[in-house]
Design a protein around this nucleic acid. Structure first.
Lengths: 235, 235
DNA sequence: CTAGGAATTTTTGTATACAAAAATCAACTA
DNA sequence: TAGTTGATTTTTGTATACAAAAATTCCTAG
Protein backbone atom coordinates (compact mmCIF):
# COMPACT_ATOMS: atom_id res chain seq x y z
CA UNK A 1 0.00 0.00 0.00
CA UNK A 2 2.95 2.24 0.66
CA UNK A 3 5.45 3.07 -2.04
CA UNK A 4 8.25 4.21 0.21
CA UNK A 5 11.86 3.43 -0.73
CA UNK A 6 10.56 1.16 -3.45
CA UNK A 7 12.66 2.12 -6.43
CA UNK A 8 14.66 5.26 -7.10
CA UNK A 9 11.74 7.31 -8.41
CA UNK A 10 12.04 10.33 -10.58
CA UNK A 11 12.50 13.62 -8.80
CA UNK A 12 9.09 14.69 -10.07
CA UNK A 13 7.42 11.74 -8.33
CA UNK A 14 9.45 12.46 -5.20
CA UNK A 15 8.41 16.09 -5.21
CA UNK A 16 4.77 15.21 -5.84
CA UNK A 17 4.69 12.84 -2.89
CA UNK A 18 6.55 15.23 -0.62
CA UNK A 19 4.33 18.19 -1.37
CA UNK A 20 1.16 16.12 -1.21
CA UNK A 21 2.22 14.70 2.12
CA UNK A 22 2.86 18.12 3.64
CA UNK A 23 -0.51 19.35 2.45
CA UNK A 24 -2.37 16.32 3.77
CA UNK A 25 -0.77 16.50 7.18
CA UNK A 26 -1.66 20.16 7.45
CA UNK A 27 1.97 21.24 7.66
CA UNK A 28 1.18 23.60 4.81
CA UNK A 29 -2.17 25.19 5.33
CA UNK A 30 -4.96 26.31 3.10
CA UNK A 31 -4.11 29.19 0.84
CA UNK A 32 -0.41 28.97 1.69
CA UNK A 33 1.81 30.00 -1.18
CA UNK A 34 4.05 27.40 -2.75
CA UNK A 35 7.13 29.15 -4.08
CA UNK A 36 8.93 27.10 -6.68
CA UNK A 37 12.38 28.25 -5.70
CA UNK A 38 11.81 27.59 -2.00
CA UNK A 39 10.40 24.14 -2.69
CA UNK A 40 13.27 23.35 -5.00
CA UNK A 41 15.90 24.29 -2.43
CA UNK A 42 14.01 22.53 0.32
CA UNK A 43 13.83 19.28 -1.65
CA UNK A 44 17.31 19.65 -3.13
CA UNK A 45 16.40 19.79 -6.80
CA UNK A 46 15.82 22.32 -9.55
CA UNK A 47 12.50 24.00 -10.25
CA UNK A 48 11.70 21.78 -13.23
CA UNK A 49 10.48 18.71 -11.34
CA UNK A 50 8.77 21.00 -8.82
CA UNK A 51 6.73 22.60 -11.56
CA UNK A 52 5.69 19.23 -12.92
CA UNK A 53 4.68 18.10 -9.45
CA UNK A 54 2.59 21.22 -8.95
CA UNK A 55 0.76 20.62 -12.24
CA UNK A 56 -0.06 17.10 -11.16
CA UNK A 57 -1.25 18.21 -7.75
CA UNK A 58 -3.37 20.87 -9.40
CA UNK A 59 -5.17 18.21 -11.40
CA UNK A 60 -5.64 16.29 -8.14
CA UNK A 61 -7.31 19.32 -6.65
CA UNK A 62 -4.77 19.89 -3.90
CA UNK A 63 -3.08 22.91 -5.43
CA UNK A 64 -4.37 25.91 -7.33
CA UNK A 65 -2.13 27.49 -9.95
CA UNK A 66 -2.76 30.97 -11.25
CA UNK A 67 -1.03 32.09 -14.40
CA UNK A 68 2.12 34.06 -13.64
CA UNK A 69 1.12 34.19 -10.00
CA UNK A 70 2.21 30.80 -8.81
CA UNK A 71 0.63 28.04 -6.77
CA UNK A 72 -1.20 27.95 -3.47
CA UNK A 73 -2.62 25.13 -1.40
CA UNK A 74 -6.21 24.75 -2.61
CA UNK A 75 -8.83 26.33 -0.48
CA UNK A 76 -12.38 25.02 -0.51
CA UNK A 77 -15.43 26.95 0.59
CA UNK A 78 -17.96 25.25 2.82
CA UNK A 79 -20.42 24.61 -0.05
CA UNK A 80 -17.61 23.06 -2.06
CA UNK A 81 -16.63 20.77 0.79
CA UNK A 82 -20.26 19.77 1.25
CA UNK A 83 -20.45 18.93 -2.42
CA UNK A 84 -17.45 16.65 -2.22
CA UNK A 85 -18.73 14.98 0.94
CA UNK A 86 -21.98 14.24 -0.83
CA UNK A 87 -20.07 12.64 -3.67
CA UNK A 88 -18.21 10.61 -1.11
CA UNK A 89 -21.48 9.40 0.37
CA UNK A 90 -22.64 8.21 -3.03
CA UNK A 91 -19.42 6.46 -3.99
CA UNK A 92 -18.39 5.03 -0.65
CA UNK A 93 -21.79 3.61 0.19
CA UNK A 94 -22.05 2.01 -3.21
CA UNK A 95 -18.62 0.47 -2.95
CA UNK A 96 -19.07 -0.68 0.63
CA UNK A 97 -22.26 -2.45 -0.35
CA UNK A 98 -20.25 -4.54 -2.76
CA UNK A 99 -17.26 -4.92 -0.50
CA UNK A 100 -18.88 -6.30 2.63
CA UNK A 101 -20.02 -9.67 1.23
CA UNK A 102 -16.56 -10.23 -0.23
CA UNK A 103 -14.49 -9.20 2.75
CA UNK A 104 -12.21 -11.95 3.99
CA UNK A 105 -10.84 -12.31 7.48
CA UNK A 106 -7.64 -10.72 6.24
CA UNK A 107 -9.51 -7.67 4.99
CA UNK A 108 -11.17 -7.24 8.37
CA UNK A 109 -7.86 -7.73 10.15
CA UNK A 110 -6.20 -5.06 8.00
CA UNK A 111 -8.92 -2.56 8.82
CA UNK A 112 -8.71 -3.48 12.49
CA UNK A 113 -4.99 -2.89 12.54
CA UNK A 114 -5.48 0.55 11.08
CA UNK A 115 -8.09 1.26 13.70
CA UNK A 116 -5.49 0.57 16.38
CA UNK A 117 -3.01 2.91 14.74
CA UNK A 118 -5.80 5.41 14.70
CA UNK A 119 -6.44 5.03 18.40
CA UNK A 120 -2.79 5.55 19.20
CA UNK A 121 -2.63 8.66 17.07
CA UNK A 122 -5.63 10.08 18.85
CA UNK A 123 -4.18 9.36 22.26
CA UNK A 124 -0.96 11.09 21.32
CA UNK A 125 -2.92 13.98 19.85
CA UNK A 126 -1.08 13.26 16.62
CA UNK A 127 -3.40 15.35 14.52
CA UNK A 128 -1.10 15.41 11.53
CA UNK A 129 -1.53 11.75 10.71
CA UNK A 130 -5.27 11.70 11.34
CA UNK A 131 -6.17 12.40 7.74
CA UNK A 132 -3.92 9.74 6.30
CA UNK A 133 -5.11 7.13 8.77
CA UNK A 134 -8.74 8.02 8.20
CA UNK A 135 -8.40 7.60 4.45
CA UNK A 136 -6.50 4.34 4.86
CA UNK A 137 -9.11 2.89 7.15
CA UNK A 138 -11.94 3.74 4.81
CA UNK A 139 -10.09 2.42 1.79
CA UNK A 140 -9.22 -0.80 3.60
CA UNK A 141 -12.92 -1.45 4.06
CA UNK A 142 -13.60 -0.93 0.38
CA UNK A 143 -10.72 -2.91 -1.08
CA UNK A 144 -12.67 -6.16 -1.29
CA UNK A 145 -15.05 -4.57 -3.79
CA UNK A 146 -12.25 -4.87 -6.33
CA UNK A 147 -13.02 -1.60 -8.03
CA UNK A 148 -9.64 0.07 -8.24
CA UNK A 149 -10.73 2.98 -10.41
CA UNK A 150 -13.52 3.86 -8.02
CA UNK A 151 -11.19 3.51 -5.07
CA UNK A 152 -8.72 5.86 -6.68
CA UNK A 153 -11.46 8.45 -7.06
CA UNK A 154 -12.48 7.99 -3.45
CA UNK A 155 -8.89 8.41 -2.34
CA UNK A 156 -8.66 11.69 -4.21
CA UNK A 157 -11.86 12.86 -2.56
CA UNK A 158 -10.42 12.00 0.85
CA UNK A 159 -7.27 13.90 0.00
CA UNK A 160 -9.35 16.94 -0.79
CA UNK A 161 -11.73 16.76 2.17
CA UNK A 162 -9.97 15.13 5.12
CA UNK A 163 -7.95 18.22 5.90
CA UNK A 164 -11.10 20.08 6.70
CA UNK A 165 -12.44 17.35 8.92
CA UNK A 166 -9.13 17.12 10.70
CA UNK A 167 -9.28 20.75 11.72
CA UNK A 168 -12.08 20.16 14.16
CA UNK A 169 -10.49 17.27 15.95
CA UNK A 170 -8.38 19.35 18.21
CA UNK A 171 -11.23 21.47 19.40
CA UNK A 172 -14.21 19.18 19.71
CA UNK A 173 -15.07 15.75 20.99
CA UNK A 174 -15.46 14.81 17.36
CA UNK A 175 -12.40 12.60 17.49
CA UNK A 176 -13.92 10.16 19.95
CA UNK A 177 -17.17 10.07 18.11
CA UNK A 178 -15.42 9.39 14.83
CA UNK A 179 -13.50 6.60 16.47
CA UNK A 180 -16.65 5.07 17.94
CA UNK A 181 -18.29 5.25 14.57
CA UNK A 182 -15.34 3.57 12.91
CA UNK A 183 -15.52 0.73 15.42
CA UNK A 184 -19.23 0.32 14.88
CA UNK A 185 -18.73 0.37 11.12
CA UNK A 186 -16.17 -2.38 11.35
CA UNK A 187 -18.52 -4.48 13.51
CA UNK A 188 -21.26 -4.15 10.90
CA UNK A 189 -18.81 -5.36 8.27
CA UNK A 190 -17.81 -8.30 10.43
CA UNK A 191 -21.42 -9.40 10.77
CA UNK A 192 -21.84 -9.07 7.00
CA UNK A 193 -24.59 -6.53 7.37
CA UNK A 194 -23.84 -4.73 4.13
CA UNK A 195 -26.98 -2.62 4.05
CA UNK A 196 -26.60 -1.60 7.66
CA UNK A 197 -22.94 -0.77 7.12
CA UNK A 198 -23.68 1.36 4.09
CA UNK A 199 -26.45 3.22 5.90
CA UNK A 200 -24.19 3.80 8.86
CA UNK A 201 -21.33 4.95 6.65
CA UNK A 202 -23.68 7.48 5.11
CA UNK A 203 -24.47 8.86 8.54
CA UNK A 204 -20.79 8.81 9.47
CA UNK A 205 -19.84 11.05 6.54
CA UNK A 206 -22.83 13.30 7.08
CA UNK A 207 -21.85 13.71 10.73
CA UNK A 208 -18.53 15.06 9.59
CA UNK A 209 -20.42 17.46 7.36
CA UNK A 210 -22.59 18.66 10.24
CA UNK A 211 -19.64 19.17 12.51
CA UNK A 212 -17.91 21.11 9.77
CA UNK A 213 -20.91 23.34 9.21
CA UNK A 214 -21.17 24.05 12.91
CA UNK A 215 -17.49 24.89 13.02
CA UNK A 216 -17.78 27.25 10.07
CA UNK A 217 -20.75 29.04 11.65
CA UNK A 218 -18.78 29.51 14.83
CA UNK A 219 -15.83 30.82 12.84
CA UNK A 220 -18.08 33.24 11.00
CA UNK A 221 -19.37 34.58 14.28
CA UNK A 222 -15.90 34.94 15.73
CA UNK A 223 -14.58 36.87 12.72
CA UNK A 224 -17.36 39.12 11.48
CA UNK A 225 -15.07 40.87 9.04
CA UNK A 226 -12.85 38.06 7.95
CA UNK A 227 -9.39 39.36 7.24
CA UNK A 228 -7.34 37.06 5.08
CA UNK A 229 -4.10 36.12 6.67
CA UNK A 230 -1.21 35.27 4.40
CA UNK A 231 0.26 31.91 5.34
CA UNK A 232 3.63 31.24 3.83
CA UNK A 233 5.79 28.28 3.17
CA UNK A 234 9.33 29.41 3.72
CA UNK A 235 12.27 27.53 2.23
CA UNK B 1 -18.14 27.54 -22.24
CA UNK B 2 -15.33 27.70 -24.73
CA UNK B 3 -12.06 29.33 -23.77
CA UNK B 4 -10.74 29.86 -27.27
CA UNK B 5 -8.72 33.01 -28.00
CA UNK B 6 -9.68 34.30 -24.59
CA UNK B 7 -6.40 35.56 -23.20
CA UNK B 8 -2.87 34.64 -24.19
CA UNK B 9 -2.61 31.57 -22.02
CA UNK B 10 0.60 29.95 -20.98
CA UNK B 11 2.10 27.46 -23.39
CA UNK B 12 1.49 24.75 -20.81
CA UNK B 13 -2.25 25.48 -20.82
CA UNK B 14 -2.22 25.61 -24.59
CA UNK B 15 -0.46 22.28 -24.82
CA UNK B 16 -2.77 20.69 -22.27
CA UNK B 17 -5.84 21.76 -24.20
CA UNK B 18 -4.41 20.75 -27.54
CA UNK B 19 -3.37 17.29 -26.42
CA UNK B 20 -6.59 16.72 -24.50
CA UNK B 21 -8.59 17.76 -27.55
CA UNK B 22 -6.79 15.35 -29.84
CA UNK B 23 -7.29 12.51 -27.41
CA UNK B 24 -10.99 13.25 -26.94
CA UNK B 25 -11.68 13.43 -30.64
CA UNK B 26 -9.95 10.13 -31.18
CA UNK B 27 -7.30 11.66 -33.39
CA UNK B 28 -4.79 10.00 -31.13
CA UNK B 29 -5.93 6.54 -30.19
CA UNK B 30 -5.66 4.39 -27.16
CA UNK B 31 -2.18 3.30 -26.31
CA UNK B 32 -0.66 5.68 -28.83
CA UNK B 33 2.73 6.96 -27.78
CA UNK B 34 3.12 10.64 -27.04
CA UNK B 35 6.67 11.64 -27.88
CA UNK B 36 7.70 14.84 -26.17
CA UNK B 37 9.90 16.02 -28.98
CA UNK B 38 7.28 15.38 -31.65
CA UNK B 39 4.59 17.13 -29.64
CA UNK B 40 6.90 20.06 -28.99
CA UNK B 41 7.69 20.53 -32.65
CA UNK B 42 4.08 20.04 -33.65
CA UNK B 43 2.89 22.71 -31.22
CA UNK B 44 5.85 24.98 -31.81
CA UNK B 45 7.28 25.06 -28.32
CA UNK B 46 9.99 23.39 -26.26
CA UNK B 47 9.53 20.17 -24.35
CA UNK B 48 9.16 21.90 -20.98
CA UNK B 49 5.51 22.96 -21.30
CA UNK B 50 4.74 19.66 -23.03
CA UNK B 51 6.01 17.73 -20.03
CA UNK B 52 3.92 19.81 -17.66
CA UNK B 53 0.86 19.27 -19.82
CA UNK B 54 1.43 15.52 -19.83
CA UNK B 55 1.67 15.46 -16.03
CA UNK B 56 -1.62 17.30 -15.77
CA UNK B 57 -3.31 14.99 -18.26
CA UNK B 58 -1.97 12.01 -16.37
CA UNK B 59 -3.70 13.21 -13.22
CA UNK B 60 -6.86 13.65 -15.31
CA UNK B 61 -6.60 10.02 -16.34
CA UNK B 62 -6.18 10.68 -20.05
CA UNK B 63 -2.49 9.87 -20.25
CA UNK B 64 -0.32 7.25 -18.63
CA UNK B 65 3.30 8.08 -17.91
CA UNK B 66 5.87 5.40 -17.25
CA UNK B 67 9.18 6.33 -15.73
CA UNK B 68 11.86 6.78 -18.37
CA UNK B 69 9.51 5.28 -20.94
CA UNK B 70 7.34 8.24 -21.77
CA UNK B 71 3.62 8.80 -22.09
CA UNK B 72 0.85 6.98 -23.90
CA UNK B 73 -2.83 7.70 -24.33
CA UNK B 74 -4.50 5.92 -21.43
CA UNK B 75 -6.06 2.61 -22.21
CA UNK B 76 -8.90 1.29 -20.10
CA UNK B 77 -9.94 -2.33 -19.87
CA UNK B 78 -13.61 -3.18 -20.11
CA UNK B 79 -13.98 -3.71 -16.34
CA UNK B 80 -12.37 -0.35 -15.75
CA UNK B 81 -14.73 1.38 -18.16
CA UNK B 82 -17.68 -0.33 -16.51
CA UNK B 83 -16.48 0.94 -13.15
CA UNK B 84 -16.34 4.50 -14.37
CA UNK B 85 -19.76 4.23 -16.02
CA UNK B 86 -21.19 3.05 -12.74
CA UNK B 87 -19.71 6.05 -10.98
CA UNK B 88 -21.24 8.21 -13.67
CA UNK B 89 -24.65 6.69 -13.00
CA UNK B 90 -24.37 7.50 -9.32
CA UNK B 91 -23.17 11.07 -9.77
CA UNK B 92 -25.19 12.09 -12.78
CA UNK B 93 -28.48 10.76 -11.48
CA UNK B 94 -27.95 12.47 -8.17
CA UNK B 95 -27.10 15.77 -9.81
CA UNK B 96 -29.92 15.58 -12.34
CA UNK B 97 -32.40 15.01 -9.54
CA UNK B 98 -31.38 18.35 -8.12
CA UNK B 99 -31.06 20.10 -11.43
CA UNK B 100 -34.47 19.41 -12.94
CA UNK B 101 -36.59 21.43 -10.50
CA UNK B 102 -34.23 24.38 -10.91
CA UNK B 103 -33.90 24.35 -14.68
CA UNK B 104 -35.00 27.58 -16.30
CA UNK B 105 -36.22 27.99 -19.86
CA UNK B 106 -32.72 29.17 -20.74
CA UNK B 107 -31.19 25.98 -19.37
CA UNK B 108 -33.55 23.88 -21.45
CA UNK B 109 -32.88 25.99 -24.51
CA UNK B 110 -29.13 25.57 -24.11
CA UNK B 111 -29.48 21.81 -23.94
CA UNK B 112 -31.80 21.85 -26.94
CA UNK B 113 -29.32 23.83 -28.99
CA UNK B 114 -26.63 21.27 -28.21
CA UNK B 115 -28.99 18.52 -29.24
CA UNK B 116 -29.31 20.16 -32.65
CA UNK B 117 -25.55 20.38 -33.02
CA UNK B 118 -25.50 16.74 -32.07
CA UNK B 119 -27.98 15.84 -34.79
CA UNK B 120 -25.96 17.66 -37.41
CA UNK B 121 -22.78 15.93 -36.34
CA UNK B 122 -24.48 12.56 -36.62
CA UNK B 123 -25.86 13.30 -40.06
CA UNK B 124 -22.42 14.31 -41.24
CA UNK B 125 -20.92 11.24 -39.62
CA UNK B 126 -18.71 13.63 -37.70
CA UNK B 127 -17.63 11.05 -35.22
CA UNK B 128 -14.76 13.11 -33.90
CA UNK B 129 -16.95 15.68 -32.22
CA UNK B 130 -19.45 13.17 -30.85
CA UNK B 131 -17.66 12.83 -27.53
CA UNK B 132 -17.38 16.55 -26.90
CA UNK B 133 -21.00 17.18 -27.83
CA UNK B 134 -22.20 14.29 -25.70
CA UNK B 135 -20.39 15.61 -22.65
CA UNK B 136 -21.62 19.14 -23.27
CA UNK B 137 -25.23 18.04 -23.57
CA UNK B 138 -25.10 16.07 -20.36
CA UNK B 139 -23.37 18.87 -18.49
CA UNK B 140 -25.87 21.42 -19.78
CA UNK B 141 -28.64 19.41 -18.16
CA UNK B 142 -26.83 19.34 -14.83
CA UNK B 143 -25.73 22.95 -14.67
CA UNK B 144 -28.85 24.13 -12.83
CA UNK B 145 -27.93 21.95 -9.86
CA UNK B 146 -25.23 24.51 -9.08
CA UNK B 147 -22.70 21.96 -7.94
CA UNK B 148 -19.58 22.98 -9.81
CA UNK B 149 -17.24 20.58 -8.04
CA UNK B 150 -19.45 17.63 -8.84
CA UNK B 151 -19.84 18.79 -12.42
CA UNK B 152 -16.09 19.00 -12.79
CA UNK B 153 -15.78 15.41 -11.63
CA UNK B 154 -18.49 14.33 -14.06
CA UNK B 155 -16.73 16.11 -16.87
CA UNK B 156 -13.53 14.24 -16.10
CA UNK B 157 -15.43 10.97 -16.12
CA UNK B 158 -16.88 11.82 -19.51
CA UNK B 159 -13.43 12.64 -20.79
CA UNK B 160 -12.26 9.23 -19.71
CA UNK B 161 -15.21 7.20 -20.95
CA UNK B 162 -16.76 8.91 -23.97
CA UNK B 163 -14.00 7.81 -26.30
CA UNK B 164 -15.01 4.22 -25.76
CA UNK B 165 -18.66 4.91 -26.36
CA UNK B 166 -17.81 6.85 -29.48
CA UNK B 167 -16.06 3.88 -31.01
CA UNK B 168 -19.27 1.99 -31.53
CA UNK B 169 -21.14 4.76 -33.24
CA UNK B 170 -19.73 4.09 -36.64
CA UNK B 171 -20.59 0.44 -36.62
CA UNK B 172 -23.91 0.14 -34.89
CA UNK B 173 -27.26 1.85 -34.81
CA UNK B 174 -26.25 3.07 -31.38
CA UNK B 175 -26.01 6.62 -32.56
CA UNK B 176 -29.70 6.91 -33.37
CA UNK B 177 -30.69 5.26 -30.16
CA UNK B 178 -28.48 7.59 -28.15
CA UNK B 179 -30.02 10.53 -29.92
CA UNK B 180 -33.56 9.32 -29.26
CA UNK B 181 -32.67 8.82 -25.63
CA UNK B 182 -31.23 12.31 -25.38
CA UNK B 183 -34.45 13.76 -26.81
CA UNK B 184 -36.56 11.79 -24.40
CA UNK B 185 -34.34 12.84 -21.51
CA UNK B 186 -34.77 16.46 -22.44
CA UNK B 187 -38.55 16.03 -22.61
CA UNK B 188 -38.62 14.57 -19.13
CA UNK B 189 -36.66 17.58 -17.90
CA UNK B 190 -39.07 19.94 -19.61
CA UNK B 191 -42.02 18.34 -17.85
CA UNK B 192 -40.15 18.62 -14.53
CA UNK B 193 -40.26 14.87 -13.98
CA UNK B 194 -37.04 14.73 -12.02
CA UNK B 195 -37.43 11.17 -10.81
CA UNK B 196 -38.38 9.94 -14.24
CA UNK B 197 -35.47 11.79 -15.81
CA UNK B 198 -32.97 10.37 -13.33
CA UNK B 199 -34.27 6.84 -13.84
CA UNK B 200 -34.09 7.27 -17.59
CA UNK B 201 -30.60 8.71 -17.40
CA UNK B 202 -29.54 5.68 -15.46
CA UNK B 203 -30.82 3.43 -18.22
CA UNK B 204 -29.22 5.65 -20.84
CA UNK B 205 -25.78 5.24 -19.34
CA UNK B 206 -26.28 1.54 -18.73
CA UNK B 207 -27.30 1.12 -22.38
CA UNK B 208 -23.96 2.52 -23.38
CA UNK B 209 -22.35 0.00 -21.07
CA UNK B 210 -24.26 -2.89 -22.62
CA UNK B 211 -23.39 -1.81 -26.13
CA UNK B 212 -19.78 -1.57 -25.10
CA UNK B 213 -19.75 -5.04 -23.58
CA UNK B 214 -21.29 -6.47 -26.70
CA UNK B 215 -18.72 -4.73 -28.82
CA UNK B 216 -15.86 -6.03 -26.70
CA UNK B 217 -17.19 -9.58 -26.89
CA UNK B 218 -17.36 -9.32 -30.64
CA UNK B 219 -13.83 -7.97 -30.75
CA UNK B 220 -12.61 -10.80 -28.57
CA UNK B 221 -14.16 -13.32 -30.95
CA UNK B 222 -12.71 -11.61 -34.00
CA UNK B 223 -9.17 -11.54 -32.60
CA UNK B 224 -8.63 -14.73 -30.63
CA UNK B 225 -4.93 -14.02 -30.20
CA UNK B 226 -4.92 -10.29 -29.82
CA UNK B 227 -1.77 -8.85 -31.29
CA UNK B 228 -1.03 -5.39 -30.03
CA UNK B 229 -0.60 -2.90 -32.81
CA UNK B 230 1.63 0.05 -32.17
CA UNK B 231 -0.18 3.28 -32.93
CA UNK B 232 2.09 6.25 -33.21
CA UNK B 233 1.75 9.98 -33.10
CA UNK B 234 4.15 11.32 -35.67
CA UNK B 235 5.40 14.88 -35.51
C1' DC C 1 19.58 -18.49 -39.03
C1' DT C 2 19.37 -17.33 -34.23
C1' DA C 3 21.16 -15.57 -29.70
C1' DG C 4 23.70 -12.51 -27.49
C1' DG C 5 25.92 -8.36 -26.78
C1' DA C 6 28.45 -4.13 -27.69
C1' DA C 7 27.97 0.42 -30.10
C1' DT C 8 24.81 3.82 -31.71
C1' DT C 9 20.73 6.38 -31.74
C1' DT C 10 16.67 7.93 -29.72
C1' DT C 11 14.11 9.50 -25.90
C1' DT C 12 13.46 10.96 -21.36
C1' DG C 13 14.99 13.47 -16.98
C1' DT C 14 17.07 17.45 -14.90
C1' DA C 15 19.86 21.71 -14.40
C1' DT C 16 20.94 26.12 -15.87
C1' DA C 17 20.16 30.48 -18.29
C1' DC C 18 17.43 33.99 -19.67
C1' DA C 19 12.98 36.50 -20.72
C1' DA C 20 8.65 38.19 -19.10
C1' DA C 21 5.42 39.15 -15.76
C1' DA C 22 4.18 40.52 -11.16
C1' DA C 23 5.24 42.40 -6.69
C1' DT C 24 7.70 45.57 -3.93
C1' DC C 25 9.56 49.80 -2.78
C1' DA C 26 10.76 54.67 -3.31
C1' DA C 27 10.23 59.02 -4.67
C1' DC C 28 7.21 62.48 -6.02
C1' DT C 29 2.93 65.15 -6.49
C1' DA C 30 -1.49 66.87 -5.19
C1' DT D 1 -1.54 61.83 4.16
C1' DA D 2 -3.05 59.36 0.17
C1' DG D 3 -2.29 58.14 -4.20
C1' DT D 4 0.45 57.63 -8.45
C1' DT D 5 4.40 56.73 -11.16
C1' DG D 6 8.67 54.60 -12.08
C1' DA D 7 12.72 51.84 -10.81
C1' DT D 8 14.10 47.57 -8.48
C1' DT D 9 13.52 43.03 -6.95
C1' DT D 10 11.27 38.81 -6.86
C1' DT D 11 8.96 35.13 -9.06
C1' DT D 12 7.25 32.66 -12.82
C1' DG D 13 7.53 30.88 -17.78
C1' DT D 14 10.26 28.89 -21.41
C1' DA D 15 14.34 27.49 -24.11
C1' DT D 16 18.55 25.31 -24.33
C1' DA D 17 22.15 22.11 -22.81
C1' DC D 18 23.57 18.07 -21.03
C1' DA D 19 23.19 13.55 -18.45
C1' DA D 20 20.98 9.14 -17.98
C1' DA D 21 18.10 5.66 -19.39
C1' DA D 22 15.95 2.96 -22.94
C1' DA D 23 15.47 1.40 -27.64
C1' DT D 24 17.62 0.18 -31.80
C1' DT D 25 21.14 -1.38 -34.83
C1' DC D 26 24.66 -4.06 -36.12
C1' DC D 27 28.08 -7.31 -35.54
C1' DT D 28 29.76 -11.73 -34.03
C1' DA D 29 29.70 -16.51 -32.35
C1' DG D 30 27.50 -20.71 -32.15
Amino acid sequence: MNDLNDTPQSLTALATDAIRQRILTGEWTDGGQLRQDALARQLGMSRVPIREALRQLEAEGLVTIVENRGAVVSQLSLPEIVELLRVRVLLECDVLLEAVPRQTAADIAAAEALLIDFEQALQQRDIASWGVLNARFHLALYRAAERPQTLALIEQLHNRTDRYTRMQILLTDFSERAHDEHCRLLTLCKTKDAIGAAAFLRQHILHAEEALEAWYCQQARALPAKRGRKPRTPG
